[in-house]
Amino acid sequence: MLELRLVQGSLLKKVLESIKDLVNDANFDCSATGFSLQAMDSSHVALVALLLRSEGFEHYRCDRNISMGMNLGNMAKMLKCAGNDDIITLKADDGSDTVTFMFESPTQDKIADFEMRLMDIDSEHLGIPEAEYHAILIMPSAEFARICKDLSSIGDTVVISVTKEGVKFSTRGDIGTANVVCRQNTTVDKPEEATVIEMPEPVSLTFALRYLNSFTKATPLSNTVTISLSSEIPVVVEYKIAEMGYIRFYLAPKIEE
């Protein structure tokens, strides 16, 4: 028996909107720790890892670890039917091949349930070793989204270079080149508006903008984004989900031919 009640149902709506175009089908794993997912995109270039900790749910009942295969497009369609203020409850009986999403309006005057068929998904779970990152960049998530969108109108790939002076996002395409430099800036009114570069060891990596742009669909989940870079390993783009967990996107770099 599984029953997860999430008062801030809009979080789950936002999570699905942020991953449904990157991953088609995925297994949601439910354990005492929380509700989680790990999945690669179909070309195995990017990986998404989601964790919603059990403590973040108003009610969390998960009698035994289960893995529920879902088509994320279909799940997003169902969650779109929930109001932004609705409380969302996920329910599944042992051995059942369906999951039920229940939506309650805040005033309890409307209750809807949507039942979705589960799928058998053969997915491999990857071990992600702890890595020491050369540079960790924390910046407003909207600013990062803006940079990725702007640069993708010029080129297909971005070179992200960190130096003591700041972080530079560069692209080039048929029509020309573009460089955006962000300097560390902690003298702002609100902490979420700061740009912070921790451990600024020089590092320079190239990534496909198409994927970074897809990751920025998670922008509504968090005011800030944390970008962890190290030479020759995937970048981690993390959006923290207030008091519940995180959504992390891993993107493999491009290398010179």
């Binding site: 195995h44 270039v45 779970h125 071990g127 992600i128 070793p129 390993i233 995937p234 493999a252 491009k254």
Partner: peptide, 14 residues
């Protein structure tokens, strides 16, 4: 531009 590496070049099945 450049060769796109795969996530599976870095992380193995656990």
């Amino acid at each position: 531009r450049g060769v796109q590496l795969s996530i599976t070049n870095f992380y193995r099945s656990s």
